[in-house]
């Protein structure tokens, strides 16, 4: 997959840096390439639901925003990337000191982009897949 914006790395950095809610949660971009990103979240008490596991909403935000950023790496210059729909499977309770997410573009369409994202919970050297998201993104001129 080829980026369509010469400044695609900077644009993708900004997708994270400018999203106040995402920053507020502590989600950060770790690495990226054309059509993919890796992100992470260091788990804190404020991310938990009532039973002491990471809230599904946090996981959904992490996965969705990362999937959007993966699509964003291929966005045409001057276009924003928006989620159209997504589905998330919560596979097991998210327990760990950090969540790692990888999101990839499955098929880069001109208007609709099929993406997937995986979220792992990391404890020490152990990683467990805790959720998986499928999402459709679109590009729009702001």
């Amino acid at each position: 997959m080829e980026p369509n914006d010469p400044e695609w790395r900077k644009s993708t950095d900004a997708i994270f840096a400018r999203a106040a809610f995402v920053r507020e949660l502590g989600i950060r971009l770790v690495d990226l390439g054309p059509g993919w990103v890796e992100t992470e979240l260091l788990v804190e008490p404020r991310h938990m639901q009532q039973d002491g596991v990471v809230h599904a909403g946090v996981q959904a935000t992490l996965a969705d925003h990362s999937a959007g950023a993966a699509a964003g790496t291929l966005a045409p210059e001057g276009h924003a990337t928006l989620s159209v729909e997504f589905k998330i499977q919560l596979l097991r309770p998210a327990l760990g000191e950090r969540l790692r997410c990888r999101a990839e573009v499955l098929r880069p369409g001109r208007t609709l982009v099929a993406t997937e994202a995986w979220v792992w919970a990391v404890s020490g050297a152990q990683e467990k897949l805790v959720s998986k998201l499928s999402a459709t993104m679109t590009y729009a001129k702001p």
Partner: peptide, 16 residues
């Protein structure tokens, strides 16, 4: 414990 330390003051544009 084994939790990684964060550098909280860095600007988000430099998150990578």
């Amino acid at each position: 414990a084994i939790r990684r330390e964060r550098m909280e003051h860095a600007h988000p544009l430099l998150s990578r």
